[in-house]
Nucleic acid binder design. Structure first.
Lengths: 196, 196
DNA sequence: ATCCGAACTCACCTGCCGTTGAATTCCACG
DNA sequence: CGTGGAATTCAACGGCAGGTGAGTTCGGAT
């Protein structure tokens, strides 16, 4: 076993960021409970105790790792600023593009996977959805029952994620962006503006 | 501690069924990995070793507990037999009614929750969806890309489940059947029959 | 040059989980 | 009535996970 000498490494090791990157990938792939500190440490080529040293606990690591590399609330606000016309389509397209950009370190997938069987993560997910998406969307809607409409949209969006990432339905995974936008955009638009 | 004497209990104990019921409830609530044999045993008021005695392993318990109390393929076939007209609405209504009937022992929720972080369960879920729902629906659809259409429906259905049971969006949980059927029925119908 | 704190590793503790094997009690059948 | 097998419990093992405390090496401010 390539045993490394104890003690601080020379230079700017960047170890903390390596741990975070590894943690994001594992959390995205397996969720909170299935991800072990030891596996994160191994992926970052580091002693498990170091992870604890930096982040205090597994919960602390999770909380830190779940930060987005951008501000989702701003993104939603930008979409809403263009009005309700075509909003459904813009939401879907933005979602897909963002996912492609995030790649293997995707906080939304990580939260979704973690929410199952780990109540604090479910809470985080609910708060994120409510504060960054549902509330702004609901207050932009000019129709009755705006909150229900926002939640209807959320249910379809969550369904896209779970169907593609968890259940891994093949044709949904293979479909290109244009097809998905054409399929889902009108659905969201209807939830936002049509008669219920 | 109310310690029970070892050995067989008098009469028809019905213990096996009690264990299965407890297992279904725990798996539905928490999924495979979070459910412990010990918690199932405790809920059934039984020694953990007895669970093992009856079902061989946790996997065995899971496989046995996941059996539906009815045949879902038959149910889908019944819906399809009435033609494609109004199929979307019938699917949603049947789903909601079935869920209400299943209550706290719901194999679909259990499979969904278990699929995260436990690949064999994901496999079971995929096979169930494909064989009992996607294939029949796809072959009933009279339009281009039938399989994609079926998967689009599945993504919305899965979204309903996750949004209500995992994320627990309040207005979706509070909404009555009529509202949900009115909202989701046309979506599914469009996925099945409209131009994409 | 010195020294404090931060980065890092090691060995270890504790707790839970799935599983096992033996012992006990009861039912069914002869 | 006796006997074999099924139901049931107990005690325990081995593994793995999260966490801890002490010790080692380095960077940077003084």
């Amino acid at each position: 076993m390539a045993r490394r000498a104890a003690g601080r490494r020379p230079g700017d090791s960047g170890t903390r960021e390596a741990i975070l990157a590894a943690a994001r990938a594992r959390f995205t792939e397996q969720g909170f409970r299935e991800t072990t500190m030891r596996s994160v440490a191994a992926a970052a080529d580091v002693d498990p105790a170091l992870v604890h040293h930096f982040f205090g606990s597994k919960e602390g690591l999770f909380a830190t790792a779940m930060a987005f590399p951008f501000n989702p609330a701003d993104m939603v606000a930008g979409l809403l600023a263009q009005g309700v016309d075509g909003l459904g389509e813009r939401l879907v397209r933005t979602l897909l593009v963002t996912f492609a950009r995030l790649g293997p370190a995707n906080p939304m997938i990580a939260l979704l996977r973690s929410a199952v069987g780990h109540p604090p993560a479910a809470q985080m997910l609910r708060e994120f959805l409510t504060g960054a998406v549902l509330d702004p969307v609901a207050s932009a809607v000019r129709a009755d029952r705006p909150r229900l409409r926002a939640e209807l949209c959320a249910s379809q969006v969550v369904g896209i994620l779970v169907a593609r990432e968890v259940v891994e339905l093949p044709e949904l995974r293979a479909a290109d962006t244009a097809t998905l936008v054409a399929a889902y955009g009108p659905t969201l638009q209807r939830y936002l503006t049509a008669d219920l």
